[in-house]
């Protein structure tokens, strides 16, 4: 067992015993060697379920939305992306920071479960990263109450080197409008509208979602056009609030490159309003959430 796993369990035990928290959210081993899945520990005898390995890709912060106005004290393990999700939810006043005990874990990047399944266990050492981890710029948690393990140097590398947040976006930018339409039509025509991308998203924090309101915004028949409308509405709803954790794309059962759309919008926001990454802190107002006189207004 790795040292972080041991420390996680010790800390969870202590927090529950001392009644500092009522619930600990972490990861446990899933059905196969290549999946680790969210676990909710509220009893001391269950702390040994907790694990930390190269497949803990799931962003746990989303679960804070299950009972967002409770006064329960919750301990939550946060990687870089999880911590940004927490910041966003705190900034949107969906959860209270004082109810959370954040246990930061520097993340070297998670391994691709899809590749693992295809390549087999003997390749465990050479597995590629999850796509979402390839363009990650914040491997170290940005907010925490206690940190387990050593900070990784990856963020400095990301800041200076070629780790491009917007890698692949230029491909769609280079397309003609028709090509781009065909590209998204191809991908979204296989969308089955399971809403996994929405439900896993920590930026999707509306208490009532427009897609759950009968036919008000989008009909329920699954058509290539309707699916694209779904994708576009969602991308614009999370614009400027998307923390680029890539969970939407990771959970999509139809392998739709959803993050390409989200990162295109993030890139546009940078170009229009200057450098911005959502969820780095709880103070900086999101560029689309406030108004500055120097904001570009070429359409006026």
């Amino acid at each position: 067992m790795n040292q972080i796993t041991q420390e996680m369990r010790n800390l969870a035990k202590q927090l529950l015993e001392e009644e500092k928290v009522q619930l600990v959210m972490g990861w446990e081993k899933g059905s196969f060697w290549y999946n680790s899945t969210p676990v909710f520990v509220s009893k001391v005898e269950d702390v040994d379920k907790l694990i930390w390995d190269e497949f803990c890709a799931a962003n746990l912060a989303t679960y804070l939305l299950d009972d967002r106005f409770s006064d329960e004290k919750i301990a939550l393990f946060v990687k870089g992306c999880d911590s940004r999700a927490v910041n966003r939810l705190v900034q949107d006043k969906q959860v209270k920071r004082e109810n959370l005990y954040l246990i930061g874990i520097p993340c070297p990047g998670m391994k691709s479960a899809k590749a693992a399944k295809e390549l087999g266990q003997e390749t465990k050492e050479e597995l590629p990263l999850e796509d979402k981890c390839i363009y990650c710029t914040h491997h170290n948690p940005l907010v925490y109450d206690i940190l387990l393990g050593e900070e990784v140097a990856l963020d400095d590398i990301a800041a200076t080197a070629e780790v491009s947040r917007f890698e692949g976006v230029e491909e769609i930018e280079a397309m003609t409008p028709d090509e781009r339409y065909a590209y998204w039509q191809d991908h979204y025509s296989r969308c089955i509208r399971c809403y996994a991308c929405r439900n896993v998203c920590p930026a999707c924090n509306c208490t009532e979602c427009c897609f759950d309101l009968g036919q008000t915004w989008l009909e329920r028949d699954v058509t290539p056009t309707g699916n694209q409308v779904y994708g576009i509405i969602r991308a614009f709803h999370v614009a400027g609030r998307c923390i680029e954790c890539g969970e939407c794309e990771r959970v999509c059962p139809m392998d739709i490159p959803i993050m390409k759309l989200n990162r295109k919008i993030a890139k546009d926001i940078e170009e229009l309003y200057g450098p911005y990454e959502a969820g780095l802190d709880t103070e900086t107002p999101p560029p689309l959430g406030h108004y500055k006189t120097e904001d570009p207004d070429e359409f006026m």
């Binding site: 909710f40 679960y63 509208r193 399971c194 809403y195 439900n199 959970v251 059962p253």
Partner: peptide
């Protein structure tokens, strides 16, 4: 049900 995110993947597949 705690970890379920209530998506429709299981039912649609």
């Amino acid at each position: 049900s705690r970890k379920c995110i209530n998506c429709g993947t299981c039912t649609y597949l």
